[in-house]
Design a binder for these strands. Structure first.
Lengths: 217, 217
DNA sequence: GTCTATACGTCGATAGAC
DNA sequence: GTCTATCGACGTATAGAC
């Protein structure tokens, strides 16, 4: 992330850049592995995906994987990071979306790739256990980043009068993330849980009081 | 839970019940293993606790564990179940507590035994992966049970005027569980996240409108 | 640098001896 | 009913071919 060698990256074609583009081929290969791994994890989650089985499915040796990724845990982290990055690239969030809108949209995206939700859940659970610095770093950083983004959106929404002004932006940000993650989990175990209804409810509760409430049940 | 053989249980002493108390000794031993295992998991979480290491710490062979518990996953499930049962036994929830009160109190309990929170998180993540029926059964059942309990509390609180009546009890139940679980996770990764503030905020949002709100930030 | 081959120690699970 | 022995698979480490 901050330690890439020279530039000169030429992913996809190493035709004439062999002798003077020493890292290009490796970087392209690494990216290729990452892309193929995303598909594998999107299909199968993270359990049952040993280094050997994923290597076989990709078409490399399991030792090649450890050449590009120093551990299985780091591979998992980077696969999720890359998948999230690509999703954001394809369909970025609008600047004035509300916090709950963001998480609702993320939930909708995730329904298409359950394996990545399983991978995310596994990474977070691993991060809680002692002795897993890669997963812990990923989870801590991701939560902090999303919290900061959502808190900023809360402030903007409050300034424009679309959200109650008597709530703490940081508390709302943490609450919205928790609700989104937790509801996603419950929904995956039992699709009858009112995931979108609960998120809509939270959005409604955060809206400035309108005496003519629309009724819940 | 529903499949115990005869009674005759004599935990702690098997002095004269050897020849005619066929299941008693085994049951006592099983319970003893469970109790010791709870302590081990409460201290160390679920990672790094292989069947061999936990067996060694308890003082039995690792094969003995698989004799009483058909798999490592089942042991994990039963350890958490038993720990939760014992906690409820020591300090049961009052009948008229609000949903958020319940989860706030659970969060407070959990701070004392971080290893069990890690175990819970691991079990839920495992349950999401295909091919883990024991964990899936545990998580699905637990969520359904807690949801039903909380929804009922919502209805009672609405009837007594302590909670907004324009919200769907089932949606509130799912939302409160999600918020509680998710905030716990975030807090374990970063103790600066406003866990109790966010839960209090949710409780306040669910309270019937009181124009003189107390301010959030 | 890129990648293969091989080996080490540990894992969950199982079979059979006592 | 409980143990020892063993199985195949795992993540990881290392040596060396290209």
């Amino acid at each position: 992330m901050a330690s890439e060698p020279p530039e000169h990256a030429d992913p996809g074609g190493d035709s004439a850049a062999r002798s003077r583009g020493p890292y290009a081929k490796g970087l392209a290969r690494r990216q290729q592995i990452l892309d193929r791994a995303i598909e594998v994890f999107a299909r199968r989650g993270s359990a049952g995906t040993s280094l050997r089985s994923i290597a076989q499915e990709i078409g490399v040796s399991h030792a090649a994987l450890t050449h590009y990724f120093s551990s299985r845990e780091q591979l998992l982290v980077e696969v999720y990071r890359e998948a999230e990055r690509q999703a954001d690239e394809v369909e970025p969030h609008s600047a004035d979306a509300s916090p709950v809108d963001i998480m609702t949209e993320s939930a909708r995206r995730n329904h298409a790739v359950p394996g990545l939700v399983q991978l995310y859940s596994t990474l977070v659970a691993t991060a809680l256990e002692p002795g897993h610095p890669d997963a812990a770093g990923f989870a801590t950083t991701r939560f902090a980043t999303v919290r900061a983004d959502l808190a900023e959106r809360v402030r903007r929404n409050q300034a424009s009068g679309r959200m109650r002004s008597d709530v703490d932006p940081d508390a709302v940000a943490s609450l919205v993330i928790a609700a989104s993650d937790g509801l996603q989990t419950q929904w995956m175990l039992d699709e009858s849980v009112p995931q979108s209804e609960a998120l809509d409810l939270l959005a409604r509760l955060l809206t400035p009081h309108r005496p003519e409430s629309s009724g819940g049940a």
